[in-house]
Design a protein around this nucleic acid. Structure first.
Length: 938
RNA sequence: GCUUGGGUGGUGGAACUGGUAGACACGCAGGACUUAAAAUCCUGUGAGCCGUAACGCUCGUGUGGGUUCGAUUCCCAUCCCAAGUACCA
């Protein structure tokens, strides 16, 4: 028999209704508070969505619909992060333009998303690969190029203010974030420069700048990767080996914002884990820089960075990174060959070797000694690969008594271990990093404590000009060039100076967008230039100058997209001031935690930059962030007999009695772990028709395991199939019912029928299950019905306010079960119930809303029911009566009864007297509206 | 190693600030309806135990302690799992 609840027709009908009526179009409405709900926009891959993808979208859609019911003007857009590597690699293989495949994939995504009934305002859709969008990404790049970071005002400013300062004061005392090797000049020197020289000098300050930097070069992909795109020496996508290479690259001075990126974390409501990851990534260390003289070397001094300057009297050696540029010049002739050998050895080690052999101690003596500035002790200078060239100064002072790595090194090379604090213990066995106690063997700080010693030393060093307090960050500036085709062109061309040096210049703002040229092949040129080098000879600025041939990285387009949603069609600005002033920032951002140090950090950086220029209002772009947990796969297995002539499979419960091999089986032909044998035979060529199945209780039961969701494990579940079978509303309810949004959980289709049955029960409150006759009545609601309804109203609201999506579903189930129990078909009650349900199951809610006689489409903007506590019938309370904490019975007392009255009532109760059996309780604890505890003994 | 989460029935999970552990759902078992099946409805379902039964008892939230009238919740120790990260001086 057909099901009475015809979800397929209903869902199609309402989806087209919403589209036709633009039900979810949002606009600036100053009479309403605004709420901006943002999903991390997807990269449209060829595989389409699997069942894990919509999880976050469902949650954000529920909040959007809930906020509309609460009277907010809701901005809930969707778009596509459509530049990226897979489309380009597909293009390399097939020659098809990435724009074409991207377009196809996006159409597929949109269709799938529309089938889910999401309340997106599609009129605001953005695509990062559209010229009308990347025009503004390029425009922001131009702003970055035309800005510098003034540490005096602690913000980015137009390059004009820098030029003004240089005109008047030069750069000698300038506090700016700039290239490290930049020479400081006076105003006179500056003013003596030619225009060209002046321009060149400012390049060292701009927030977007060209630099010969050591980059992660991936030869297999022919491109540079960002640090967060490399894992253990291999590319995150594709797993190709990555090597270090020096290249001229565009970079962004994100380090200028290091401190603001750090402190800003305190004002956003993000998970501790994400905040901690960002803190680690930024890696702020407070310490000091100390200069050591080198014995018999006049022209060089070694600077070290240390977070424990107080341990400086314990220095017994110094270590330089093997890649340090002074290695050759500081090696004595006797040690030359040993050092050369060591350097060669470290170079031969791959990133992976270094990571996996962390505990192995290696190093070599250079033959040179350095002088500890605090006590003039000679200490030997070593090379060791535990010191990294890229962090701090590439040199470390060795304090074996206070640092375990230094201790290991000293023990290995038989160097002295000097105790420096009287509280240090057991330093002959291992280092003791304590800061407790008083200093010994420590010259001017003897007898002081940690706090006193650090300050004393730093000022002592500063007075003599051989050291200063310093803050060191682990975060590097962000490399911005990619040697790829499918990305935003950089709006820059190169013009030679009179000396023939090529300098970068911005194209004119009126010439934006600089569109991607057509090229014949999507590969690097024969000379190793990026694919844009293949563009025809007329792709030149003013027909004369070469454009930049690298393109922007994937994170460029995604670092500001939430602003474009505010005013997606604007042709004059990235977004109008009116729109930015109204929508301000994202109120709720939902997406995966894998973007912790990539997208989420870059976006905060660009947002702060845009704020500095006065283009936006908020220091942080997303107030609240929720990371939905990944949905893992749940694989099913069948067990094939190993030594059997006939192909035979044994059911899960019996497999231990046989020799079997486990094989993956497609989860889509398994229901509640029971195999559909017919479908199984049909689906596989290697299973003949006469294959045997050893069953248990007449069924073939499959085993299961949680694994990654992937095609090769036959555990991919497609949302389209589930929508066809159960409907989008069921899928939405079920995905939320699965468990807390943030938790990692395996997908298991088994219990989806429970969510489907729930919606059918809702349907049956409105229509007779057999006759399909409308059962609704106009009668006034009973006290019981109101109690059930208002219990649900309160809990749904409370739970949604704390984003507890799964408990809302069970609340609604309880409410529907109770109303069914009460045979409630009253319009006034069911109307409110429908509003509660509508964010989760919008299609069925719309359909039943019309059955109530309400106007179609209006449920989306109905008023969320008001909770009325007087319906809860709380004038009496069932008190659990416990004895020493163990509940034995419950007794009813009036809510207004005083603790004394309750105690008297409890002690007078027959059952209580029986349990007490003459023993008088030592204490009776009455917690109003909670519990009564009778304490016996002692 | 460090950082952040997390260990609760056969399964997914619930229990908001310490107050009847296991809501809700799946699964399973039994029953009603039906010629039968599906659907639907009803009952039971943490483990163990006592008894004919009503009723009742013991144990139980990874493990061991502690605080408390009372602990899944707080504290200490410890084991395991997941994610992130790492010679960062």
């Amino acid at each position: 028999m057909r099901s009475e609840y015809q979800f397929r027709e209903i869902e199609k009908q309402w989806q087209s209704f919403w589209e036709k009526n633009e039900t979810f179009k949002s606009q600036i409405n100053k009479n309403k508070p605004k709420y901006f709900v943002l999903d991390m926009f997807p990269y449209p891959s060829g595989a389409g969505l699997h069942v894990g993808h919509p999880l976050g979208y469902i949650a954000s859609d529920i909040i959007s619909r809930y906020k509309r019911l609460m009277g907010f003007e809701v901005l809930h857009p969707m778009g596509f992060d459509s530049f990226g590597l897979p489309a380009e690699q597909y293009a390399i293989q097939t020659g098809q333009h990435p724009a074409v495949t991207t377009e196809n994939n996006i159409s597929k995504y949109i269709e799938q998303l529309k089938n889910m009934g999401f309340s997106f305002d599609w009129s605001r859709e953005v695509r990062t690969s559209d010229a009308s969008y990347y025009k503004w990404t390029q425009w922001i790049f131009m702003k970055l190029f035309n800005s510098w970071y003034n540490q005096e005002t602690d913000k980015a400013e137009s390059i004009d203010t820098l030029i003004e300062i240089l005109n008047k004061k030069g750069s000698v005392n300038l506090r700016a974030v700039c290239d490290e090797e930049l020479s400081r000049i006076t105003a006179d020197e500056w003013n003596s420069y030619s225009e060209e020289e002046k321009y060149k000098y400012t390049l060292g300050f701009r927030l977007a700048y060209l630099d010969d930097s050591v980059v992660n070069w991936c030869p297999a992909m022919g491109t540079v990767l960002a640090n967060d795109e490399v894992k253990d020496g291999f590319s995150e996508r594709g797993g190709y080996p990555v090597e270090q290479k020096k290249m001229r690259q565009w970079s962004m001075r994100i380090t200028a914002y290091a401190d603001r990126l750090l402190t800003g974390l305190d004002e956003v409501d993000w998970s501790d884990s994400i905040k901690e990851q960002q803190r680690n990534w930024i890696g702020k260390s407070i310490g000091a820089e100390v200069t050591f003289d080198i014995e018999n070397v006049e022209d060089k001094k070694i600077k070290v960075f240390t977070t424990r300057v107080d341990t400086i009297y314990g220095v017994s050696f110094m270590v330089l990174a093997p890649e340090h540029e002074w290695v050759d010049s500081l090696t004595t002739p006797e040690q030359k060959s040993a050092v050369a050998e060591y350097v060669k050895w470290t170079q031969s080690r791959s990133e992976l070797d270094r990571v996996s052999e962390v505990k192995q101690i290696s190093g070599v003596f250079t033959g040179t000694y350095v002088i500890n500035p605090v006590n003039n002790e000679r200490v030997p200078l070593y090379l060791a690969d535990y010191v990294l060239a890229g962090y701090g100064t590439g040199a470390v002072m060795g304090v074996p008594s206070g640092d375990q790595r230094d201790w290991n090194f000293a023990t290995h090379f038989d160097l002295p271990i000097i105790p420096i604090l009287d509280a240090q213990k057991g330093i002959e066995k291992q280092a003791d990093a304590t800061k407790e106690g008083h200093y010994i063997n420590s010259g001017i700080i003897n007898g002081l404590t940690y706090k006193e010693a650090t300050n004393t030393l730093v000022s002592w060093l500063e007075q003599r000009g051989i050291g200063k307090g310093k803050i060191q960050y682990r975060m590097r500036n962000a490399v911005f060039s990619r040697q790829r085709y499918w990305g935003e062109p950089v709006p820059v061309y190169f013009k030679p100076t009179t000396q023939g040096e090529l300098l970068p210049y911005l194209i004119d703002e009126s010439e934006l967008p600089l569109e991607l040229p057509k090229i014949d092949k999507y590969l690097p040129t024969e000379t190793g230039e990026p694919p844009l080098g293949r563009a025809s000879a007329d792709w030149k600025y003013k027909n004369q100058y070469d454009y930049e041939w690298s393109t922007m990285p994937g994170w460029a387009g995604s670092s500001w997209y939430w602003y474009r949603y505010m005013d997606a069609q604007n042709k004059e600005e990235f977004a109008s001031k009116e729109a930015v002033d109204y929508w301000k920032a994202v109120d709720l951002y939902i997406g995966g935690s894998e973007h912790a140090t990539g997208h989420l950090l870059y976006s905060r950086f660009w947002n702060k930059f845009l704020k500095d220029l006065g283009l936006v209002n908020e220091e942080e772009f997303a107030k609240k962030l929720i990371n939905q947990g990944m949905i893992q796969g749940r694989s099913n297995f069948v067990y094939r007999l190993k030594d059997s002539e006939k192909v035979t499979f044994v059911s899960f419960g019996l497999k231990d009695k046989y020799q079997v091999a486990a094989l993956h089986v497609d989860v889509n032909i398994v229901e509640n772990d029971v195999l559909d044998i017919k479908a199984f035979k049909k689906s596989r060529n290697d299973v003949p028709d006469d294959a045997e199945f050893i069953l248990e209780a007449g069924k073939y039961v499959c085993g299961w395991e949680v694994e990654k969701m992937s095609k090769s494990k036959y555990n991919v579940v497609n949302p389209d199939d589930l929508i066809a079978k159960y409907g989008a509303d069921t899928l939405r309810v079920y995905e939320m019912f699965l468990g807390p949004l943030e938790q990692f959980k395996p997908w298991n289709t088994n219990s989806i029928s429970g969510s489907h049955n729930f919606l059918r029960k809702v349907w049956r409150l409105f229509f007779d299950e057999n006759t399909q006759v409308n059962k609704l009545v106009d009668e006034a609601a009973s006290a019981d019905e109101l109690r059930v309804l208002h219990t649900a109203i309160r809990k749904v609201k409370d739970d949604l306010d704390r984003f507890s999506f799964n408990t809302v579903v069970s609340t609604l189930m309880i409410c529907v079960n109770d109303l069914g129990q009460l045979k409630c078909h009253k319009k006034s009650v069911l109307r409110e119930l429908l509003i509660l349900l509508s964010p989760y199951a919008p299609h069925i809610a719309e359909e039943l809303w019309v059955a109530l006689g309400e106007l179609p489409g209006q449920i989306s903007y109905a008023k969320f029911p008001e909770f009325n506590p007087s319906f809860l019938n709380e004038d009496s309370f069932k008190y659990p009566i416990s004895f020493n904490g163990k509940v034995k019975l419950t007794l009813d007392f009036s809510s207004s009864a005083s603790p004394n009255e309750i105690e008297a009532g409890v002690l007078a109760n027959e059952q209580v007297i029986k349990i007490l059996a003459g023993v008088s309780p030592s204490k009776v604890i009455v917690v109003p509206k909670r519990i009564v505890n009778i304490v016996l003994g002692k």
